[in-house]
């Protein structure tokens, strides 16, 4: 069954990463990618590799920090965690997303008020 997968909207990847890290604490790149897949229920089509430039960008902006560590399989991996500034950014972006989607939903809902 070919499901119709949405392409990931640009800019939302950052939000997803921040949210993931905020919810799950410290994760390595692979873990973040897997988690995003899981949450979206495999509804989005993501080239996992694109997460790395995104992580770099988030780190440059100071919203996440990184540290080399050892994974559960004794593998060397880079772990990322959200920073305090990142938490603020997340809250701000969440808010604007909710507002935007509220407006959109209101438009798309058929109701007498809207006709």
């Amino acid at each position: 069954m070919e499901q119709y997968k949405n392409e990931i909207l640009p800019g939302t990847l950052n939000l997803m990463v921040l949210k993931t890290l905020s919810a799950l604490g410290s994760l390595h790149g692979y873990g973040i990618a897997r988690r995003i897949e899981q949450i979206s229920g495999d509804q989005i089509q993501l080239n996992q590799g694109t997460i790395y430039p995104a992580l770099l960008h988030l780190e440059q902006m100071g919203w996440i920090s990184s540290k080399w560590g050892v994974s559960e399989n004794n593998r060397r991996a880079k772990y990322y965690s959200i920073t305090w500034a990142g938490k603020k950014q997340l809250a701000a972006e969440e808010e604007s997303w909710r507002r935007a989607s509220d407006i959109m939903i209101r438009f798309l809902e058929p109701s007498e008020e809207n006709t």
């Binding site: 790149g29 996992q48 060397r76």
Partner: peptide, 16 residues
């Protein structure tokens, strides 16, 4: 470092 990360990522995926 990126090289290491990517290799690591792939290995983990392969394991899964």
């Amino acid at each position: 470092e990126l090289e290491d990360e990517i290799r690591s990522h792939l290995e983990m995926q392969i394991e899964d």
